[in-house]
Design a protein around this nucleic acid. Structure first.
Lengths: 234, 234
DNA sequence: CCAAAAGTGTTGAATTTACACCCATGA
DNA sequence: TCATGGGTGTAAATTCAACACTTTTGG
């Protein structure tokens, strides 16, 4: 992946699959390669690993550098190391996946060499990146069913309808609003505020916020106690 | 981890957490380090990555080299890359976890520099290997609840009591035999043979074998179509 | 016959699912 | 007042959990 020096036998890199929710469902940003191999083709944002930088920080950094965004959720996906995944050299890529909020994604830098694609309709990507995205999509959809990562797509407060729409968009199936409400309320991790949204031609929905004392997902002993910053309650 | 050349900025290695079931529950083999750092302390089997060797093959190879065993299940656990996890140099380790059968584990080479330990009572290990084992244990126990990896601890045929005892040993809690039976029978992936075990002072139990057309666990698009070899039905 | 584990049946609780229906708002 | 989603109620279906009971063997 065009990294570091050529003196090492194996090259190590970090790449990141970034998800945001757009009009047509899940969207991910890709960068156009400006050198061989795969020059001109689209690829996942990525780069070399710096000697003194943690892997997760590297993922966050190249996320920031290519899109200008900070993610609300970042997790290691897998380490890809097939011998022939890059022509000529042996590249091992530690891949992370990230979720960003749509309002931030709006501001995202989009230029000649960075473009957002609909996740289910990608062109042929460089390297094995199509397979990587497929796996990231599978993980996201699987995890959506048993964790509360959906909240990472939303701002500090949200209505239950918004949260449900996130689930529906990611899982691509309708969800019963009544059952969804009870399910979420029973699962904890969410706190009702006294605020409501007015202006709609219907009963004003209550706003919720997430309970920052409860982790979005249970990663067992790996949980990096990196809980999101406590939210200011308005 | 004392690998390859020092010309590269970051050293890449593979380690493996190997699980077998022994009398006192889960057991794992460790190797004694014969050089600095952590000389004399116990550590996970591991080694450098060869230029032309797939990561999974490297894990299988150092499993074979240190214990003489081949595993019935091998999966990537996580890639550990904290900056200070090895004194002096930057080492990124791709860690795999493996399951082996007790009958094979019996034959395992155990010498001055290789010893089997009870997984829940490990001494202080080299590097961050205690944390790695904790995470592997969590993954094994979590996965035991929703997949059929328990079968990887058993031979080609087994009774439902044996299968249940694997669950009980790993999860460390008793399981109702009646409910366990129905649960397993409903979940498919297991086939009843016409054979029974005689000789016990009780009704002879039926032998089962696993359905090799059903994967032990659903890893989504990552499944390496590396299904176990079809079993000969006796 | 007795002990022990294999295997089947049954019942109540908990959870899931579908859908009816009332509530509060803006137009 | 009507349309629209917010929010509550409820009952059937399914799954889960506990445990009684019957079966088949060896001693």
């Amino acid at each position: 992946m065009a990294t570091t020096v050529e003196t090492s036998e194996v090259t190590l890199a970090v790449s990141t699959v970034i998800f945001a929710l757009g009009g047509e469902g899940l969207r991910i940003p890709l960068v156009r390669r400006i050198r061989q191999p795969f020059e001109g083709q689209w690829a996942l944002p990525g780069g070399p690993i710096l000697r003194t930088e943690p892997l997760e920080a590297a993922a966050g950094r190249n996320l920031l550098e290519t899109t200008g965004l900070r993610s609300t959720y970042l997790e290691q996906l897998y380490c890809f190391g097939d011998v022939d995944r890059a022509p000529g050299e042996r590249v091992v890529s530690v891949v992370y996946w990230a979720l960003v909020r749509p309002d931030e994604a709006e501001l995202a830098a989009e230029g000649e060499n960075v473009r957002w694609f609909t996740a289910d309709e990608l062109p042929a990507l460089a390297f094995d990146h199509n397979a990587i995205v497929d796996y990231a999509l599978w993980r996201l959809r699987t995890k959506m069913e048993y964790s509360r990562i959906a909240q990472a797509f939303l701002g500090p407060t949200f209505t239950l309808a918004e949260l449900r729409q996130v689930h529906e968009a990611v899982l691509r199936r309708p969800i019963d609003p009544a059952n969804f409400r009870r399910q979420i309320e029973a699962s904890k991790g969410i706190i009702a505020t006294e605020q409501r949204i007015t202006g709609g031609r219907h009963r004003p929905p209550r706003l919720y916020r997430y309970d920052s004392s409860v982790a979005l997902t249970d990663n067992g002993p790996l949980s990096t106690t990196r809980n999101e910053a406590p939210r200011v309650i308005s």
